[in-house]
Amino acid sequence: MSDKEHIKSLIKEAEIYRKQSLLEPSKEKYEEALRLIQNHESYSKGKKLIDTIKSKIRTVEENLVEIDQATDTPELSQEVENLISQLFSFSKNKDVAAMEGAIALAKFGQYDNALAAFRRLIKEGNMPLLAAKNILMCHMTLSSPDAAIAQFRQWVSRDEFSMKNLGYIRTFLENALLKQGIKAGLPQVAEASPEEGKPEEKEEDIIDIASVTIQFTNGPRKGEIVEFDVTFQLGNKISTIIPAHQKDLADAFKPGLRLSEIQCFSSLAVFNGRGTVSGLKRITSGPRRGDYSLDITIDSV
């Protein structure tokens, strides 16, 4: 290939990559062509050609900056937001689906509308605790701990939540703030007895758990920690799969077994819980045939 052909081929390649929005490779090819031209005995005198390529490099660089600075949370039409809520709510339970839809909006960065949806859920009495926690997480994700604190103060000043739930929300916010190194003077709520301190919302409060780690607190496996991905979840009941070759592990989960050290990982938070093995059965058909399906009911977080 002659020098001329080589330069032409590099420019062509750069053009096509640019059209494909493969901007980094496009820039590299233009630069390679420019170097060849500038070092060439006769082409280096062609100022027009050099200027053209330099201009193309500048354009590509500008495009790269534009893309780099483009917002990751564009304003979406109401129609598209409704679609997101609808497409990413997977539960058959209407209330849970409404919550999943609101969480999806938050995950797609539509925080204002997610906040509105969570507030609506609180108003409707649909999983108000979880909605409150998500409102706080939205504020925290927006790097606005002050807004989260202000929101909590507002709840304290109103009658939207019982003292028990306010205490629970307070602990949740306190921990979330501490994780960001913020020690805030949150307003105290009336002292509740240990029993009363538990949130009123139980089953509804747990949602979208991706995985759990369980520590055996007694028996031959005492101290051992195992981790499972959650394959199915309905309210506070989660299911996971134990492969057939881990029969010994499956045998350790006798129905009724109390699990007092469960760590739950969700996309929005990590929290500790307790629960009971509510079922263990061998899968007899389908691709998971032979494996074990383990059901755990989480009764407190």
Partner: peptide, 16 residues
Amino acid sequence: MVSINTKGDRTLFFDF
């Protein structure tokens, strides 16, 4: 068809 793009026609969220 629903597309949610960012600059340079890059898919930001998803197409549906």
